[in-house]
Nucleic acid binder design. Structure first.
Length: 256
DNA sequence: TCATCCCTGTGG
DNA sequence: CCACAGGGATGA
């Protein structure tokens, strides 16, 4: 589910709840996360809450509690005793709890002294590296955008949305993009991601994603998940192909 | 660079 | 029943 806009929305909603607050206890409801409470020295004050790509980092004393939501994870803020199905980990604060909920159990929570993931520049940072970086790869541009070592934060929904906005066929090799296409891509990335953050992300029909306070995201994809439906710009049916093992949606007329 | 796997649920 | 799902690690 969660890509940069959903993760950023999650962090923004949680920051005022937990920044500077004291994590009193951590409680694993899934044996996979038993090591987490043990490896923390509690109570500890939350000195930072940050997003790096799609990772969420809680700064706790000298340690980082690192969360990756993968496909179906989410963090909820719960002031009562409610424990939704598939709650895996509870972080207890004086005024409420942060719940890590994850149906598919692909998400990860780790405690580390240092964050060492090898991530490319954040998708919302300065993108002037793009032209040179793209020259070095023959991978389809959509596959390139999904590789977090190239650029961090873009996932399957927004890769499709960004390439639609930029008018680029997702199958084109990265190194085949001319200067004008690269420029459009460079502009489309922050435009799409910023709009999605303002909408609090994308909540698909299954309703799996919600903000920590239970709100749905309002972003409405132009192409993602719209196979066979008319392109909102030109009316041509949206196509679905497979790229890099993932479903890939695009408008064959608007994207070349 | 690809398929495969991790895991669970839903929809066709 | 099978296909597919917002992500990513792994090994061939």
């Amino acid at each position: 589910m969660p890509e940069l806009p959903e993760v950023e929305s999650t962090v923004r909603a949680l920051r005022p709840k937990v920044l500077g607050q004291t994590l009193l206890r951590a409680h694993a409801l899934d044996p996979v996360f038993d090591p987490v409470p043990k490896s923390l020295s509690l109570p500890a004050q939350v000195r930072a809450l940050e997003r790096r790509g799609k990772y969420i980092l809680f700064g706790l004393g000298d340690l980082w509690l690192v969360v990756h939501l993968r496909m179906s994870g989410r963090l909820l803020w719960e002031e009562g005793q409610a424990r939704p199905p598939h709650t895996r980990l509870v972080l207890e604060f004086p005024q409420g709890n942060v719940l890590f909920v994850d149906v598919r159990r692909l998400g990860t929570v780790e405690v580390v002294p240092e964050f060492t993931e090898e991530l490319g520049p954040d998708a919302l940072s300065d993108l002037s590296f793009l032209p040179e970086a793209l020259k070095g790869s023959r991978a389809p541009i959509k596959v390139w955008l999904l590789d977090q070592r190239n650029i961090a934060g873009i996932g399957n929904i927004y890769a499709a949305e960004i390439l639609f906005r930029a008018g680029i066929d997702p199958r084109r090799p990265a190194n085949s993009l001319g200067p004008r296409a690269v420029q459009r891509l460079k502009e489309a990335i922050p435009e799409v991601l910023t709009e999605a953050i303002e909408a609090l992300g994308t909540t698909l029909a299954d309703g799996a994603y919600q903000t920590p306070e239970g709100e749905a995201g309002d972003y409405e994809p132009w192409v993602y998940g719209r196979e066979g439906l008319p392109c909102k710009v030109c009316g041509t049916p949206i196509e679905r192909i497979e790229l890099g093992g993932r479903g890939t949606y695009f408008c064959p007329r608007c994207q070349r």
